[in-house]
């Protein structure tokens, strides 16, 4: 009888140890799930298999030159348009005077 009880105690102890080892999950796993549950929507789906652009602008002297050239061209174009819109501008005897008509 004593031997039988000892075996039972050993078996129960082993089972408890094995259970503790296998059930390694954090007891607050449910809370962790609830924190992320609302994020499993179409917004999450949109990021899957997609390329998210977080590009930066690199310093490129040639590109900077091109941009400046484009800016100058645009400025000259605007100036030409302005002159075409107000031809009397050329008639000013005082050089550039936007208030002279």
């Amino acid at each position: 009888m004593k031997k039988y009880l000892l075996t039972m105690v050993f078996a129960l102890g082993f089972c408890a140890f094995a259970l503790a080892q296998s059930n390694d999950q954090n007891p607050r796993a449910r809370e962790a799930y609830q924190a992320y549950e609302w994020q499993a929507d179409s917004l999450h789906a949109a990021t899957m298999g997609a390329t998210i652009d977080k590009t930066y602008e690199a310093y490129d002297p040639i590109l900077i030159k091109q941009e400046r050239r484009e800016e100058r061209r645009e400025f000259r174009r605007q100036l030409r348009l302005e002159r075409a819109r107000r031809p009397v501008f050329w008639g000013s005897p005082y050089g550039y005077n936007p208030y002279w008509w």
Binding site: T47, G49, A50, T51, I52, D53, T55, Y56, E57
Partner: peptide, 8 residues
């Protein structure tokens, strides 16, 4: 999943 493009 997602691929982040952090290049220029």
């Amino acid at each position: 999943g997602m691929v982040e493009n952090k290049s220029h």
